[in-house]
């Protein structure tokens, strides 16, 4: 057969595309369940990490069930909403200001409220979880994740030492919401608590700063009700 004829070229391209599409669709369907399970485990690891608990993949389930007492959804005005907090799409929740997930954990007898955060960094989305003490003001722990920040620079926000800085910081000052600022190492912020950003990861650090403000802002009414 003439390999250079138009007919052959068109048929070849058509067959190739159909074959490739079928192969990819099959792989995607076959692996979907396992991938979803991995994502859930990963999410639980992140939630546990903001409580300063590190867990391996095989023990996550047990530790999560032990520490997390309940989870519920709140609206921006502080009222409760229907639904499953764990599977709630946080991006959608923030754009509507409804159904924001809250997880309640008990660590050594003390209640911690865990809230979800979501924002944008330099290359893609950022997200994280922040655990607050039962005064709903002092930070107990925080954990940050990213989709594709630069390794060695912006990606450093997911290291434990960055998250640890938040412990003990307060998000309200004299009853008004102030958030926690990310500043260049050595600088300070007026009238609010602050932590050091990442050197060389300025835009990611600014993204984290904005993310904390805008995410916590959604929860202000919930956090004010003691």
């Amino acid at each position: 057969m003439n390999r250079e004829s138009n007919l052959y070229t068109v048929i070849y391209a058509g067959v190739l595309v159909v074959f490739v599409a079928a192969a990819l669709a099959f792989t995607n369907q076959a692996l979907k369940e396992t991938q979803k399970k991995n994502e859930e485990i990963d999410k639980k690891i992140q939630i546990l990490r903001c409580l300063n608990v590190t867990a391996e993949a095989d023990e996550v389930e047990a530790k999560y069930n032990e520490l997390i007492q309940e989870s519920f959804l709140v609206n921006k005005d502080g009222s409760k909403a229907e639904g499953d907090a764990f599977s709630e799409d946080i991006a959608k929740a923030y754009s509507n200001g409804t159904a924001l997930p809250v997880f309640v954990a008990k660590v050594d007898g003390a209640t911690k409220f865990i809230i979800a955060m979501r924002g944008t960094g330099l290359w893609g989305p950022l997200w994280g979880y922040m655990a607050l003490n039962d005064d709903k003001n002092t930070v107990y722990g925080a954990d940050f994740s990213h989709a594709g920040e630069t390794p060695g620079l912006g990606a450093e926000i997911s290291t434990p030492h960055f998250g640890k800085q938040f412990s003990g910081k307060e998000i309200f000052k004299n009853g008004t919401f102030k958030s926690i600022a990310i500043v260049k190492p050595g600088k300070t912020a007026d009238g609010q608590d602050y932590v050091d950003g990442i050197s060389g990861g300025t835009i990611t650090s600014q993204g984290v700063d904005k993310m904390i403000y805008s995410s916590l802002n959604n929860y202000v009414e919930f956090l004010k009700t003691k």
Partner: peptide
């Protein structure tokens, strides 16, 4: 079997499929 005129496209598709499979 590759038609000469669309060989680059075919190469690209093969590479893209492999990359996607590896990541999945």
């Amino acid at each position: 079997t590759i038609p000469n005129r669309i060989r680059i496209i075919v190469q690209l598709v093969v590479a893209a499929v492999l990359v996607t499979l590896v990541s999945e």
